[in-house]
């Protein structure tokens, strides 16, 4: 299937912080169409959320009126207690969950208007890491990582070059032929990260990637994510691990009860 092509481009005005102006604003430079435009300059908005809400029933909100902007190259921790809305937000960003109100732009895609048939193409431009790894249990380590390239129609030669390089980057060289059940939790998460990063996405979303790991393995995973961020990829890390967030000294967005309560440039876990 051919990759979808862009349809329209919406140019945004300079940002006005007043709620009224924000309501009428049309967001960053985005396309409601399919293929992202030429790579934006470093520092351009990569994720723009405007008044995002996700309602369950009449008065129950998983996410309530959340607006934020994440720029290229940032490493952002999204923190909050269980049920704060972290996973809802990350699921919206990867196009897994529909929003009830507001608008969401990710890497040039208007996720709020994303059609089902375009989701695969959208997903190919981001990388996702989950707490439960979500590896393909019947594929080897090599095949798991290669699958992210296969879905993009990458040629065999590229797969044979990129996959070993990526496995070396995450410290899994020599374990290519193992199956997920033959790996430790930390190794599984490294495979998941390698798969999420092998196609060099501009955005990597990690939803509680250390949730199933002990402290030592957890920090190793964070170090891999930091390495990926150094290579230019924006990392959005959803976590409730206070120690990790405090050690990172990076931007921290705090959610509580579905609302954004704090956004610190160099923040700490404060709840």
């Amino acid at each position: 299937m051919a990759e979808p092509k862009p349809k329209t481009t919406i140019k945004l005005k300079a940002k006005d912080t007043s709620p009224k102006a924000q309501k009428s604003s049309s967001g960053p430079t985005v396309r409601t169409g399919r293929k992202p435009r030429a790579i934006p300059k470093k520092g351009e908005p990569l994720i723009v959320a405007e008044y995002l809400s996700k309602a369950f029933g009449k008065d129950a909100f998983a996410l309530d009126d959340v607006s934020l902007e994440i720029r290229e190259g940032e490493f952002v921790s999204l923190v909050g207690r269980s049920g704060a809305g972290k996973s809802t937000l990350t699921n919206m960003i990867i196009g897994e969950e529909r929003l009830t109100e507001g608008r969401l732009f990710v890497n040039g895609w208007n996720v709020s208007l994303l059609k089902r048939r375009h989701i695969p193409f959208f997903r190919r431009q981001i990388g996702v890491v989950f707490q439960d790894f979500k590896l393909l249990s019947r594929k080897t380590v090599f095949e798991n990582v290669a699958f992210a390239l296969v879905v993009r129609g990458a040629p065999h030669k590229q797969i044979m070059e990129d996959v070993p390089r990526m496995l070396a980057l995450v410290g899994l060289a020599g374990k290519e032929e193992r199956f997920p059940h033959e790996l430790s939790g930390g190794e599984k998460q490294r495979v998941a990260i390698a798969r999420a990063f092998v196609h060099r996405p501009k955005l990597l979303v990690a939803d509680e990637p250390t949730g199933n790991l002990d402290a030592l393995y957890a920090w190793e995973i964070i170090e891999v994510l930091l390495k990926i961020n150094e290579l230019g990829t924006t990392v959005l890390l959803a976590t409730h691990d206070r120690d990790i967030v405090n050690r990172l000294h990076r931007r921290v967005i705090t959610l509580d009860g579905g609302r954004l309560i704090r956004d610190q440039e160099v923040g700490e876990y404060v709840l």
């Binding site: 989701i119 695969p120 959208f122 997903r123 190919r124 393909l136 993009r152």
Partner: peptide, 10 residues
């Protein structure tokens, strides 16, 4: 479901 998350087409 994992394949879908990775961006595989139907």
């Amino acid at each position: 479901s994992v394949m879908k998350l990775v961006g595989a087409t139907r």
